[in-house]
Amino acid sequence: MVKLILMNSYEYQEYITSAIEGYAKEKVLSGNWNEEESISKAKDEYTKLLPKGEKTKNNFLYTILKEDKAIGVIWLAQKSEEEGFIYDINILKEYQGFGYSKEAMKQIESVGKKLGMIKIGLHVFGHNKVARGLYEKLGYQTTNVLMEKEI
């Protein structure tokens, strides 16, 4: 069983660096951004979403622990009184495939319920079939699909 603990400032600094790099890479892979602009655009987005870092109001950034070892992160934002949004869930590569994401998702849903949320949304890149499969198994439904084709 995994445990969620709120990030401290040190954990946040480690997280934000890797999150920006990962997000920039995903945006390039999905064809949204070119590589040259990706890091600066990712930094801008994170700065807008988390202007006060891990202390940004209505944002809950957790370290995911397995037997007191940090194995990943999950970030839930409260968008309104009743709606939340999972901006990020990331399990370290060596811990993937053991069901830890599923456990963390169920726990973050409990956190959301305690905060009064009745709905939680998330975004998943179209090319991330593993994550899409997990979210569907957990009952998340597709609400929008964007498609494009290079011609």
Rank of each mutant, 00 (worst) to 15 (best):
K52C: 08
K66Y: 03
D68R: 03
I64V: 15
E67S: 11
N58C: 06
V73H: 14
L50D: 07
I64C: 10
W75A: 13
E54L: 04
T47S: 13
G72W: 04
E54W: 07
S40I: 10
A70I: 00
I74S: 13
A70P: 10
D44P: 07
N58A: 04
A77S: 15
L61R: 05
W75R: 14
K52D: 15
K66I: 02
E45S: 14
E45N: 14
N59S: 10
L65Q: 02
T56H: 02
P51V: 05
T47R: 06
S40T: 08
K48S: 11
K69N: 03
N59L: 02
S40A: 14
L49Q: 11
K55C: 07
K43H: 07
G53I: 09
E54D: 12
A42L: 08
K41G: 05
T56G: 08
K48F: 12
I39L: 15
Y46F: 15
T56W: 07
K57E: 15
S40D: 12
L49W: 06
I64W: 01
K57T: 02
N59M: 11
K52T: 07
T63M: 04
Y46Q: 12
D44T: 15
I71V: 11
K41D: 09
T56L: 02
T63G: 02
L49V: 12
G53A: 10
G53H: 08
T56C: 03
D44K: 09
K69M: 01
L50T: 12
K52H: 11
P51A: 03
V73S: 12
S40C: 10
N59Q: 07
A42R: 07
I71R: 00
N58V: 03
L49N: 10
I64F: 02
I74V: 14
T56I: 06
K66S: 06
A42Q: 03
K69I: 01
I74L: 11
E45Q: 15
K55Q: 11
E45K: 14
K43I: 12
K48G: 10
G53P: 04
K66L: 12
K43R: 09
K57N: 13
A70Q: 01
L76N: 06
Q78N: 06
P51I: 10
A77E: 13
I39E: 06
K66T: 01
D68V: 02
K43M: 10
L76Q: 03
F60L: 13
D44R: 13
A77D: 11
S40P: 03
W75P: 01
V73R: 13
A70V: 03
S40V: 15
A77Q: 14
K69G: 00
S40L: 10
K55G: 10
K41Q: 08
L65F: 04
W75E: 03
I71A: 00
F60C: 11
T63R: 09
I71Q: 00
G53W: 07
D68H: 07
Y46N: 06
A77W: 09
F60W: 05
I71E: 00
E45V: 11
K52I: 13
V73L: 01
L65N: 00
A70F: 00
T47Y: 10
